[in-house]
Nucleic acid binder design. Structure first.
Lengths: 233, 233
DNA sequence: CAGTGGTCTAGACCACGAT
DNA sequence: TCGTGGTCTAGACCACTGG
């Protein structure tokens, strides 16, 4: 592949450059690209996968390949509001709520909250878009009793803001785990990529000023759509 | 692939379970596995790549597939010493110095240090091993004048410790960037994986108590060999 | 040197997206 | 429905690893 990879890369860059294709513009069909380069589709796809890793292109399930935009820069310390961060970086942010329900158990959740099995939680699943492109799926768990009536609010807005304004909750401290992990079907589907594809998985435990865990939050990002900035001291 | 993937996963798990293969144990050859499963090598390799993403196995260039050990947990706030962190997690850490030289320019470096083009830097490249397995390549840049004589010390040890003991430098603050990025050949080779493979790239700018940048540090991790823990406030 | 992984060719069928 | 991407088969050659 390494021999043809350079050819593939040069060819794609030429296509993007010549036709002045902007971010999120669709590339020609795989079969057409393969023919242009006189290589097999498999070889071409190996190359495209690698180009995806270099942040030049990205894929959408059965829709094709597109020109990749810049990465979204996330600062978990500042991240009060996804929407405002996105707009600062000239993205158009959108959010879709996939589901909201009350449930009573999930081992990893209640152990983190240090509560009993019978405690009820809200589970919320959302997709985040930047310029119409799905880049992240988010799962949130919050103690139901403390935040009763939560679903009455517009959940496509910042939950942090909702909590602050309506429940007098301020996030004071947060603990963050970052790893590369494969996507289950449930998360892969909304992102428009096949199950088993890698993601950057960011798990956050957010505490209020009394030290209570407020929000157990898991974000699955398209790995090349994001970079993180963290300041430690 | 998704149909055969489950078969492949079950088969590999069975192999590992039945033969009680421990971490870093080699799996049978690809051709043999493919025959056992009655599938093509290409299909098998797709499956193995995905299993690698799930952290079950890992690859080494032209040597084969191995049973993956647990992830190394890194806390950049605590990370004074790779070796001690590794031993706390029951790994045997090793370090090899790939190169050490003095150089004068690299745009991204001197702009971060906010110095002139003529300033000299030490560039150091090291590989880190856990239980004999190469998991990370590190590039460090330090201002040469301030740390003259640095190469006289044992550079396979913690540089932070060397700086503290011999140059009276204490790291006070650090800025960290985390992203998934492809490996150039120079970094892929010591890790025993093909160029173009993804990595977790951690860039750290470390400052002393006077606010001077001491260390410009880039780490390229095998993506499934590590997870990060970060506490923010 | 033999065996193995890395890469590639030349086809094929199916399931889903767009229309 | 047509074209596309997702997946798979059945080979092949080369470069490197390991004995």
């Amino acid at each position: 592949m390494s021999s043809s990879f350079d050819d593939i890369k040069a060819h794609i860059q030429l296509l993007i450059g010549n036709d002045r294709l902007g971010a999120n513009h669709k590339l020609p069909a795989e079969r057409e690209l393969a023919e242009q380069l006189r290589i097999t589709r498999i070889t071409l796809r190996d190359g495209l996968n690698r180009l995806e890793g270099e942040g030049l292109v990205y894929r959408q399930n059965r829709r094709g390949w597109f020109v990749a935009p810049n990465r979204f820069v996330m600062n978990p310390a500042k991240k009060v509001n996804f929407n405002s961060m996105a707009r600062e970086q000239s993205f158009l942010p959108t959010t879709k709520v996939l589901g909201f329900r009350k449930l009573s158990v999930r081992r990893d959740i209640y152990s983190a909250f240090a509560v009993t099995k019978s405690t009820k939680f809200f589970e919320m699943r959302r997709v985040r878009y930047l310029d119409q492109r799905a880049v992240m799926v988010e799962e949130s768990y919050l103690p139901a009793e403390r935040f009763s009536g939560l679903s009455d609010f517009d959940l496509s807005e910042s939950v942090t803001e909702i909590l602050r304004h309506n429940y007098a909750v301020n996030i004071n401290r947060e603990h963050c785990n970052i790893q590369v992990a494969n996507l289950e079907l449930l998360c892969a589907e909304p992102l428009g990529i096949p199950a088993g594809a890698p993601s950057l998985k960011i798990t956050r435990l957010r505490y209020d000023s009394s030290g209570y865990l407020i929000d157990y939050n898991i974000e699955y990002w398209l790995p090349h759509a994001i970079e993180m900035e963290v300041a430690t001291q």
